[in-house]
Amino acid sequence: MKKSQLMEKLIHGIFLVLGLITVGCVLLITVYLVISGIPAIREIGLVDFLFGKEWASTASEPKYGILPFILTSVYGTAGAILIGVPIGFMTAVYLSKLASPKVKSVMQSAVSLLAGIPSVVYGLVGMLVLVPGIRKIFDVPDGASLLAAIIVLAIMILPSIIKMSITALDAVPKEYEDASLALGATPIETYFKVSVPAAKSGIAAAVVLGVGRAIGEAMAVMMVAGNVPNMPDSLFQSVRFLTTAVSSEMAYSSGLQRQALFSIALVLFLFIMLTGATLNFFLKREKE
């Protein structure tokens, strides 16, 4: 009897450890990023690091200002949201409310496919279609630019926005829509004036999820944005994002430069945690 009780306790303990692994991973990641990110910030100075306008890590007198990366990430994400959200949102309303079941199911598979395509494939197509296209259409010397990155990011966040908005819109009780129709509103008026407001927390969560995806994307952006650490003054400028700043120099970096890359990762991590907290806020409100 005693032995079997001991056994049960032991097994309970094993499962507890397994359960806590995720927590451990989050802590580990946070601690590692903080520990490896702090030294360079200390050495460079927080203000110079965050608000310095120049990044010249390999110059004889190196400069480590990451404002260009922060602004590029912010602008790039904002641009992607500006293009991706309206298209995704409108698609979601159509598929959730107006489309025939057949169209809805075909389009949902198409959207899943879009979500499953590896980011390097987006990067590749962007490199060979979008970049030359921008060069020709806008008559600029190089199409690898902020604009190219924005378009690629807009496409990449589309599936998350569509999927999550559809889930939110599908969950709107039919009673609301019936009430609106019975008042003499047309179906389309009903969807936009009753269903969409009723699903607004879920749709907001979809937007925040898109923000997270856009801020965190590295490889596709790496392939189309040009990667020069310019301030993002124009859409046609070759720019570097927070993500690509980390990946483009990591392979050959050393010393303070390498430490500064870890600091950039820490900044990126903070951005992500912030969007994550916002996302949670909206999801919680959606539940209520």
């Binding site: 499962f15 927590v23 590692y32 997270g212 994550g276």
Partner: peptide, 30 residues
């Protein structure tokens, strides 16, 4: 099956959500 403490469950689920939100470049670095 095992967890009886709601707080622990909440923390673990929150951690899982956080993990799925972290971009791959950060995973690469860590």
């Amino acid at each position: 099956e095992y967890a009886s403490n709601k707080k622990v469950v909440g923390i673990i689920e929150y951690a899982a959500e956080t993990l799925s939100g972290i971009p791959s470049i950060i995973y690469g670095l860590v």
